[in-house]
Amino acid sequence: MNTQDRFGLGWRDDLAAGILSNLHRIDALEVIADDYFDAPSKKVRAIRDLAQQHPVMLHAVSLGLASTIAPDRKRLAQMAKLIDKVNPESWSEHLAFVRAGGIEIGHMASPPRNATSIDATLANIAAATKTTGVAPAMENVASVIDPPGSNISEAAWLSSVATTSPGGLLLDLHNIHTNSVNFGYDPYALLSTIPLHRVKTIHIAGGKWIGKRILDDHLHPVPDPVYAMLAFVAVRATQPLTVILERDGAYPPIADLLAELDRARLAVNQGREAATHEYARV
């Protein structure tokens, strides 16, 4: 067991009371950065105060760094300002594009997977790093549509970005589960390919079936395959991991979310134990 592994929750205002009264069971919190770009200073100070007392990471959703279009300077500046004010442990963004040609998609769209998009994404990550002074961890995204214009696999594309990107990979296991179902690949083959040593943080969440596909809506409990993948990663990644449970609505009692965190803790510990036994046999 790696005693430095941590298990936390995505901060949501609707969960605030439950989170604050159970901080002793929540090792870290992840705050949606964009919610604070134009927030009253009182709200930003509240997050800053929280970050002084408990590990807080900022998670951005609207920079659109996986794009051939350069990120919006104003948004990058807002991110830099927020990092400066809150002083989080780290920050992250998604490997997605969210706007193009003046059109706001409204959510994270999977980029076409090809050499051009890898180069453009790395350039945008470098620009974000330069503006904020801190390299973001980059998160793999889920999709119901296989992005057109792709000529390399998700595993190869992710590996290329994760290997080079200075902030490494934020590994979302429900997104891997979702894409493996939607596009018919073996999630364990992907997990065996990507550079797991570049992962510091893991997201877990739940979604729902829409016909023959899964939608990563963060409104449902974490499904069994995600816990199994979590244990698989814990066997192979020797570095300390921070696991964050994401829930974006249809909130259950906080006890249910804490129970999901306990199950994540169990899965990671089982993976660590298995790794220890494997090592002892060598």
Binding site: A100, I103, P111, P112, N114, T116
Partner: peptide, 17 residues
């Protein structure tokens, strides 16, 4: 293969019925 024009085209497909 990725270009701003291609991403704009996809963005339009995703948002404009």
């Amino acid at each position: 293969m990725s270009t701003p024009e291609f991403e704009s085209f996809l963005a339009r497909l995703y948002t404009d019925p």
